[in-house]
Structures are given as structure tokens and as C-alpha cells.
Design a protein around this nucleic acid. Sequence first.
RNA 1: GGUGGGGUUCCCGAGUGGUCAAAGGGAUCAGACUGUAAAUCUGACGGCUCAGCCUUCGGAGGUUCAAAUCCUCCCCCCACCA
Length: 428
Amino acid sequence: MSVLSILKKRGFIEDLTHTQELEDYLSNNKTTCYIGFDPTADSLHVGSLVCIMALAHMQREGHRPIALVGGGTGLIGDPSGKTELRKVITQEQIDKNKTGLRNQLGRFLDFSEGKALLLDNAQWLTKLKYIPFLRDIGRHFSVNRMVKAESYKARMDSDDGLTFIEFNYMLLQAYDFMQLAKSHDCFMQMGGSDQWGNIVAGTDLIRRTLGKQAFGITFPLITTASGIKMGKTHKGAVWLDSEKFSSYEYYQFWVNADDADVTRFLALFTFLSMEEIEQVKDIQGADLNKAKVILAYEACKICHGEDEADKALKASVSMFGSIEIPDNLLPGSSIPRGRHQRYSEDSVPSSSYNKNDIIEKIPLIDLFVDAGLCKSKSDVRRLIKQGGAYINGNKIAGFDQKIIDGDVQNCEVLLRAGKKKYHKIILN
RNA sequence: GGUGGGGUUCCCGAGUGGUCAAAGGGAUCAGACUGUAAAUCUGACGGCUCAGCCUUCGGAGGUUCAAAUCCUCCCCCCACCA
């Protein structure tokens, strides 16, 4: 089975160019393909996960993926859009972010021996000269056509308008594609559905300048069943970096998936076989939670490693109760089977304090803020008032309550905000 | 460059001198119900030393007992015209 059918089957494909030719191209060649990533943050989040998984599938089928960091485009920034000032980022910042991206992508892709590449378009974009660029590249673009591109059309019709810089992203991205085609034999670009126009511009440019056929694939925008763009929690974006978002929280994010999303997410975000995933469709009601556990385990394993996934599973069982993973459910998963009871060890988010500083000293209100369970003291008060703040499973009654000796068990105190957010205070 | 319209709390968006921490909706959070789901209902939703106080309505000044609301200057955005 070709990668294309794999991607198709798993729900990655929104749109593609030259269906039949692309199928042939992928079946008969070991190809190179690329996806662009923004270096605007030092970590990727689940929003980019579809792209990353697609690259991983390509690599698993013997193709060579390129992750292209937009270091050059990042240097331009984009002054438009008053809501989110996309700032011009400095070279140092880009370099730092690049390292971060590289480390994270390394969990999904094998960068050894040139099996995958990480490139930066600053390499060629910063060398561009305006006049030659206009002459050699600009002449291939028709403004009439560009304006009709869906991504621009919306902006043209909106009140915000479109800046010249933004308008030029299409040319720059097309140029990127052409460069990669020339230098790395890369004739395939993938990206989110909003990238369609830019990708097609690239394939056109390659045809006109190099006389070669190039291909493009776009992925659907993944929304949750409730129609919201996925990847937001109380802590903001769901980062792939364990410093920003612990593996336990990452696991929790997936376990909390909507019923209606489970099979779709299994197909997109795990490597389990589609035959097995198909069977999950028949599962009804509470049993679906078992499939969610496997989804969370597998997603966590891919991003943070098997050890972390184990820990997250155990921590979750300790917090939320036992669960049984039957042998015949998604047998391809390496999740430990059988009944998971309470474990002593866990990896719930925690922080350490000096015992003498805490006991009967610091109000719980402050600890909830410190632990990141609430964003302000007012927030904690609210929580307490509404009966959602707990210490060791007991409701906190007063605003001035402090930890007392009796609360400490094995040098630990467990704080809880609402039903799902836990934080452990370790005293020593 | 000209003319007109705007910048309000996370987002959209009401609000034209006191009754404004600011309607309404969305998002979010908590409680109930549940399956760590969805839907639904209830409540909360700037901060704090929390029945009180403090800081917010593009920025800086000013008028007034009192300003998101009036005046001045500045910054930014949009539309049309050039």
C-alpha cells in the first residue's frame, strides 16, 4: 500500500494535486517531501501534530521528510492584524526556537544519516535581491489569480485587509519549494488546508521554471467534535515540550477527548493499524474510555517515550480509579494489559517545599496559585466558594485554611482543583 | 495626502457625564447529572489584606464634585477618494 493510500485511509488528506500522477510518483519512487514550520515559538503544539505525523508516515514508508523552518519568513514578521501582533523575531530567537523544534521533531522523525532533514529557508531567502527576484520569480505570478486564492479572498473581503508582506508570503513559499526541488529533489509539499494556495503556487512555479511536475497535499483542519480547533486547555496551548506541558498533562489531554473523536484521533495520532481502529467504532458508552486510554497512551508514547507514557497511565489510574484494558482491544498497542489498580508511584505534577515553611504558615490559597492550579488568589477564592478546592480529597472550607500536620501523608499533600486538576506538594 | 468611521475587560460586541468592574453572546472555570465523554441545568468569570478597597475602556494631558462617556494633542486600524 502506498503512503498516499495510508494517509487517505487515516484521514490526513483534505486535497491533493494530480491524484493519479501523485499516486504513481509515490509508489514508484523514494521521494522527498517537505512541510514548513513557523519558528515563532520554541515549542510545537498539537496544532502541528497532523503535519508531524504525516511526515512520520512518509518516513516509515521509506521517503525522506524535510522539516523546513521558516527562519527567513520569520525575519520579516507581519505587521498586520491588530489582535495578534506577529512580531519580527530576532535571529537569536529563531536559532533558539530551531533547536527546540529540532529536539521535538526528533521524537517523531529519525534524523540520523540524512533520513530526515531540518532546513531553514533563511539560507536562501536572506540572499535574495529584490530586482532579480521580481524579474525571475515575480513575473510568473498573476495578481489576478493570487487575489482569487481562498486565503487572500477572505482577507480582501474582511475589514482588516491584507498587507503587502502577507501578500508576498505566497511568492516566498513558492520560492522555498522551488529551491528544495532544485537542491534536494523535493517535489512534494504538504501542509494545512490554509496552505493550499501557497502550495499550488509552488508547484506552478516549479513547472514554469524547472519544467518539472511537483505535487501538493493538504490536511484538513482538525477540530474537536464540538467544532473547536483542537488543542486548548486551561493552561493554554497543548505543547509538545514536556517543560511547558508535562507528559501527564499531555496524556490527560488525550484521555479527555470527545467520544466522537476517538477513532478519528486514533487514526491520525497513533500508528495503530486501521483494521484495529475500525473495531473501536462499534464500542459504545463507557467502554469507549478504554479506547481513550489507549489513545492517550500511544500519543504520549510517541511524543514523550514509553516510560513517560507508563508513568502517565499509572498516575492517571491513581487519580481517577482503576481501569481494565482487555487483550483484544487495539492489540497493536504496547499498553500494559489487564486491570490497572491504584499505584503508589505516579507522575502527577508536583512541587517541593521546605516543610517548616509550609505547615501552618502559607495559606492554601497561595499554594494553589503557586502550583499553577489557579491563576490568581481571587480565582482560588472563587473555587473554594464554589466547592471545587480539595486537599487530600477533602473540601477546603475556609479562605485562610493552611496545611496542618495531619494533612501530611508520606511527606505529601495532594491538592485538587475541580475534578481533574491535581497537584502534589512534596515536603522535605 | 483628503474625507468619513473606528480603537471597550480572553474574543465578538453594547455602552455618550454619575445607578459602570461596564449589557448580551462566545470561550473558560466550578457545582449537579455522568463514563476523567457529550448534552442539559445552576453559578462564577479584573485584582487584592474581599460585606471594603484598588486598577481597567488605544496613549498622554485637561474640564468636572464625578469621565469609558466632554475637550486638546498624539499613536494605530478601516472604508472611500487621490
